[in-house]
Design a protein around this nucleic acid. Structure first.
Length: 373
RNA sequence: GGGUCGGUGGCAGAGCGGUCAAUUGCUCGUGGCUGUAAACCACGCGUCUUCGGACUUCGGGGGUUCGAAUCCCUCCCGGCCCA
């Protein structure tokens, strides 16, 4: 069984149409990987996943270790069964939490910031303080892999350090090399046979470090490759550069995942650079915050459903959208639901945004298939 | 008719002589959200401003005071009680 199969390559760009095969099913690529950190696509019941077109989701090792804990998940036979997610799943290693649980001071290493849950980063691993109960949790590459075995996602990520934005070259180089050594330990720790492992490229905003990292990761015994250390506050240009620098060094035969990206308007150009899968919390998060996507002509815009001007608006979110939300509800009603914090508001908005994203990806796949990209 | 409590910025509701242009919540407005500590967060919300301030506000009017949203008088309006 081939894990990743390329069905068609673009003649114009590095874009490719592919298929990832996992024990839980296939993923047509390019694919969007919505984020289900704690085992749930927030506000969306698993029974909707199929009609939404969601092929794969992204769970988080750190948060699942924190709650409900590995013993519980194992007891229920893994996260698929426990969370009733009958689709291929990817799990993040916990490396991103070095960044996300750290503070926001630009230019200060997370482990040196006082009062954050990131206590220490050293060769051994990362020591966190549990946001839930305050206990110290040590994440090592070995522990992360073990945890990901227990969680049981189909695709797992190597444990890395997501380097903070604003890190200087010296720190970036040190952290990147450490992440490389962690990758070797992850590989040595041995995943389950029914799982595939992705190595993660770091290197920050420095071209030579990015390329070195890509070369290093590419030559290891991995099933896929991921670009990490992005979506940490960099400018769009920096993001694009970081992907571009590395694009030529991505092994052709491996699926490539871009971690934490992205913005709906950025997807196309990254597909053209050879990215196959993208995970991003944005569509579901902004939905809960009241923002929904809609097309205005060729442009994709965001609409704030909280806006008072929608009070009596009879239109759906998007006139051309065929999702459940748009087929049944006016902006007026959606606005009313958000206004009143009615729980269904979060569902309807999340449903629409996910449907919208999946629709975009279907179109992009078709464009590659028909040679337009 | 008598008594009593009350009338504060879009709303609710604090303040009850100076530190009050006036706590707080909501509404409203603007911005943000990229491997989710996020059904969240930040900022603004009398007018003008060279951003130092300046000016007009707490039902209306009149007083006391160096100084009043805060005390007194009176009028208007509302709730409750008694006739």
């Amino acid at each position: 069984m081939t894990f990743f199969q390329i069905e068609r390559r673009s003649k114009k760009t590095r874009a490719r149409l592919g298929k990832i095969t996992t024990p839980r099913g296939e993923i047509l690529t390019p694919a969007f990987v919505p984020v289900a950190t704690k085992g749930t696509l927030k506000a969306i019941p698993p029974k909707d996943i199929k009609e939404l077109g969601v092929q794969v989701a992204f769970v988080n090792t750190f948060h699942l270790v924190d709650d409900p804990g590995l013993e519980v998940i194992e007891k229920f036979g893994g996260i698929h069964k426990y969370a009733k997610l009958d689709i291929p799943l990817m799990s993040d290693s916990g490396g991103f939490q070095v960044f996300s649980l750290g503070g926001k001071k630009i230019g200060v290493p997370r482990s040196e910031e006082k009062g954050t849950p990131v206590l220490e980063i050293d060769e051994q691993g990362v020591c966190f303080r549990s946001p839930k109960n305050g206990e110290e949790v040590l994440f090592t590459p070995e522990f992360s892999i073990q945890a990901q075995k227990d969680i049981g996602a189909d695709i797992i990520m190597a444990f890395d350090e997501c380097i903070f934005y604003g890190a200087d070259k010296k720190y970036t180089e040190k952290a990147t090399e450490r992440t490389h050594r962690w990758l070797l330990r992850c590989i040595k720790a041995k995943k389950r046979k029914d799982q595939t492992l992705y190595g993660i490229i770091q290197g920050g905003v420095f071209k030579d470090l990015r390329i070195d990292s890509a070369k290093f990761v590419a030559k290891q015994n991995i099933d896929g490759i991921a670009i990490g250390g992005v979506s940490v506050g960099e400018t769009h240009k920096e993001l694009r550069d970081q992907v571009k620098w590395v694009a030529l060094y991505l092994p052709e035969h491996l699926p490539c995942h871009l971690l934490g990206v992205g913005r709906i308007e950025d997807i196309t150009e990254f597909i053209k650079l050879g990215i196959d899968t993208f995970d991003c919390a944005e569509p579901t998060r902004i939905a809960r915050h009241g923002q929904v996507f809609r097309r205005q002509g060729q442009k994709i815009m965001r609409l704030d459903a909280m806006k008072g001007s929608l009070r009596g608006d009879k239109n759906p979110i998007d006139k051309n959208c065929v999702c459940y939300t748009c087929q049944n509800f006016s902006l007026s009603f959606l606005h009313h639901l958000f206004q009143e914090r009615e729980l269904i508001a979060y569902y309807l908005a999340s449903y629409h945004n996910l449907f919208f994203f999946e629709q975009i990806f279907r179109e992009l796949r078709r464009q590659i298939a028909t040679g337009k990209i």
